[in-house]
């Protein structure tokens, strides 16, 4: 039994070349005109060069870009995370370390005493973001992450919260939260669409 049935085979003919094409030279000359016109246009600055002069000129990335993480704050400036371990469970790279502690605030049971993400191990898949029930962890558009040592790249809670402050100040919030105002899933119960899970939004 042939893998392809004969009736499904369509024979494609080589296009017949004209004499000019067969001699190559006229068509090559045509091609050279295109090439050189681009060259001349670039040199005289009459066409739009797409190159961004990177360190001086930052790219504007779409809000769903998956860069460095941030830990969101709620309206009172506290860390939003409730230490549910959903993100570290979902993380395929096992790079989230959380130490939970009883919450000092009455509206939740736990809060993260320690929250460390190894940014070098992270594969920036965004699974943590999807798993989080309270939209506490998010990936931002910051992409040019550098550090002098491996320890530098272990982002702890303070660092991650400072990324939040930084991105709010820059106005480059990720998709789900705008200006620090959290999305529906994090809103107090009874205020509306609390049943829709954040993973679907």
């Amino acid at each position: 039994m042939p893998a392809i049935a004969e009736k499904n085979v369509r024979w494609v003919k080589h296009p017949k070349l004209s004499l000019a094409e067969q001699i190559y030279l006229p068509t090559i000359a045509q091609g050279m005109v295109t090439t050189i016109s681009h060259l001349v246009k670039t040199l005289t600055g009459t066409n739009s060069i797409q190159t961004q002069q990177y360190p001086e000129q930052k790219p504007s990335l779409p809000p769903h870009y998956r860069g460095v993480h941030r830990l969101n704050r709620d309206e009172q400036g506290r860390v939003k995370c409730v230490s549910c371990y959903m993100c570290s469970t979902a993380c395929p790279a096992n790079c989230i370390d959380i130490v939970a502690a009883p919450s000092p605030w009455p509206d939740r049971e736990k809060y993260p005493e320690l929250f460390v993400i190894d940014e070098l191990r992270c594969i920036y898949c965004g699974m943590c973001e999807q798993a989080c029930p309270v939209d506490a962890i998010e990936l931002t558009t910051i992409f040019d992450l550098t550090g002098m040592s491996r320890e530098d790249m272990m982002f702890d809670k303070e660092k991650l919260l400072s990324v939040f402050d930084q991105t709010v100040a820059m106005g480059t919030d990720p998709v789900r939260t705008k200006g620090g105002r959290l999305s529906v899933a994090a809103e107090p119960a009874g205020s509306g669409l609390t049943t829709s899970s954040s993973a679907q939004s």
Partner: peptide, 8 residues
């Protein structure tokens, strides 16, 4: 190559 491809 860059100039032909509209780059810098």
């Amino acid at each position: 190559s860059a100039w032909v491809q509209d780059r810098v």
